[in-house]
């Protein structure tokens, strides 16, 4: 990583100024990492001092649109109501897109130098391993359980029983249970 940047020398401590200014050289680095079109937009936006209000508004609208999209799975118009897995995958994809938008634009990571990978990639990997390590002990904890425990743990059959009870209603009352 090239750190020495003549541009940052005049005022090394003035708040954020020099931090972004070395980005000029660092940006070229990161632009080289991004391919093709990504690199050109990075440069174009950098000249307007990191995106500017227009970019932020576009990101904001995209975030609102994506929130509406994930909320759409809740509405009755969602076509895969009987297959929740489709909705889960969809919402996770939407969430990851939203997270990327926030991290890249609002947190300015798109315009940062390569140090961003040093901090984010190990943390993200640790996060993933952490969750995976929980799977055998906790995720599969009810695959095989003692009979005694099985007696007292809630089951999907309890939900069905309650729903059935709702349909039957009280013995004396009318069938709808109103």
């Amino acid at each position: 990583m090239s750190i020495h940047d003549p541009h940052s020398d005049p005022q090394p401590h003035s708040g954020h100024g020099p931090v972004t200014r070395p980005g000029e050289s660092a940006d070229r680095e990161s632009a080289a990492d991004h391919h093709g079109a990504g690199a050109t937009t990075t440069h174009a936006e950098h000249h307007e001092s990191h995106g500017g209000i227009g970019t932020y508004m576009m990101v904001f609208l995209a975030l609102c649109g994506l929130t509406t999209m994930s909320f759409f799975t809740y509405s009755s118009a969602w076509p895969w109501r009987d297959q929740p897995q489709v909705g889960w995958a969809f919402m996770l994809a939407v969430s990851c897109t939203k997270a990327m938008l926030v991290v890249l634009f609002f947190m300015h990571v798109l315009w940062e130098a390569n140090w961003k990978y040093v901090l984010t990639i190990p943390a993200a990997m640790m996060a993933i391993f952490l969750a995976l390590m929980l799977v055998p002990d906790i995720g599969m904890r009810t695959r095989m359980v003692a009979q005694e425990r099985a007696l007292y743990m809630p089951r999907q059959s309890d939900v069905r029983l309650m729903e059935q009870a709702g349909e039957t209603g009280l013995p004396g009352a009318e069938p709808a249970g109103h």
Binding site: A131, L134, V135, G139, T142, M153, P154, Q156, V159
Partner: peptide, 15 residues
């Protein structure tokens, strides 16, 4: 860790 345990607890839960 919190979100991971939530997901793992939720999908490992019998109900």
């Amino acid at each position: 860790a919190l979100l991971g345990s939530y997901v793992v607890l939720r999908f490992g839960a019998p109900a």
